[in-house]
Simulated scan of single mutants.
Amino acid sequence: MNDASKRSLPEDVAAISEAVAGAVLTIDLGAIRENYRRLKARLGDVRCAGVVKADGYGVGASQVAAALLREGCDTFFVALLGEGIALRRSLGPGPAIFVLNGIPPGAEPDAVAADLCAVINSVGQLVAWRAAARRAGRKLPAAIQVDSGMSRLGMAPGDVECIAADPQAFDGIDIRYVMSHLACADEPEHPANEKQRLAFERLRKMLPEAPASLTNSSGIFLGPSFHYDLARPGAALYGINPTPAKLNPMLPVVRLQAKVAQTRVIEKGAGVGYGHTYHAQGPLRLATISFGYADGWQRRAASAAWFEGTRLPFLGRVSMDSIILDISALPADKLRDGDLVELLGPSQSVDDAAGHAGTIGYEILTSLGPRFHRRYVNG
């Protein structure tokens, strides 16, 4: 690269990223902090953790955790050991970081070195963490997860009964919490909620006395009997509705906008997109945006973008890197190359997009790909 080329490059790396990206994802860290405050208000004196697995539900675990730390959150949950190690590097010493899926066999030294808390889901994991404590010469922190009826992770009731009879089962283990997870908390009237709560009560009484944790985002709204000592909200922090049958009590967190790559006019009868699944019924003005299923937008997800309050329907199929919009409702020359149209934001929430795709907001957020310029505001 010659000197003239170097001089022509912007000095601000963020400006380069936004200039070359096909889409911009804006994450409002202030909204995440407000959502945390709203959940804390419902919990009263109950402690509130932050779940930042899957890179903070796709919006950035380190940025989200740092924002929550400023709100007083000192306990975080990730799914995988690698996520925990990365978060420890980001946050530094101090906050507790629990690994929900447990520590993989043989990786216990890595977890100890990163000062992570194991979530123990099986007798095998318990034995391995106990051995790691012997090697470390000190007690190691852990949460004991019991399966109260979800059949996903956690010790089965039979296993809990067995270890309860072993006085040395928890030698070297600093039990921070006994925990479980609700399967149907987003359906308040579902009988499984109370059934799980009662099962959790029975199982935790077999184990050494320790603080308890059962509640996820939706579980917070089931009432105080589900709150115990620590709540573990995830989705609600990111603006996903924890009470699907009611108005969303959370603030929206993300805004996704895609750039217009090209505009055109087509005549009646022109085919649009792969397979010509749409033919123009008359003259139309179109815009192609630099955004597609390679960016995580499912082909069945919400089929419109928005520009200054005007709905712009998708036409034809979603492509890997582009989507065609009908912009005929806008005044001529209103939308130009390089302008941003909204996919997620005030006009279309994450839950709205999920409804069109027959899925949930979690999947929409965590599917968003790495090609966006990520812009953090109100941090």
Rank of each mutant, 00 (worst) to 15 (best):
I360C: 11
A111D: 11
I289L: 12
A287K: 09
F77T: 00
N216S: 15
H279I: 04
A294K: 08
D171R: 11
V178Q: 12
D171F: 05
R88L: 10
R152V: 09
R202W: 10
R300G: 01
P157D: 04
K53E: 03
L251A: 10
V46A: 09
A164V: 10
L198D: 01
Y228S: 00
G58W: 05
M206W: 07
A86W: 10
A61F: 12
Q298Y: 10
L312K: 12
V13W: 14
T263K: 04
K246M: 04
G158E: 14
V51R: 08
G58Q: 07
V99E: 03
S148V: 07
I364Y: 08
R33N: 03
G292A: 03
V78D: 04
A210W: 07
V24W: 07
A199H: 01
G137Q: 09
A142C: 15
K195L: 15
L368F: 04
A131D: 13
L368M: 13
S17I: 07
G316D: 11
S122C: 06
G271C: 04
A329G: 15
S217D: 06
G84N: 08
S151R: 13
M150W: 01
D186G: 01
I323A: 14
M179E: 11
A79R: 12
P95G: 08
G239F: 03
C73R: 03
Y238H: 12
V341Q: 01
A41K: 15
A304P: 01
D333S: 11
A111P: 11
G44M: 05
S5L: 11
T366E: 09
I32Y: 00
N216F: 00
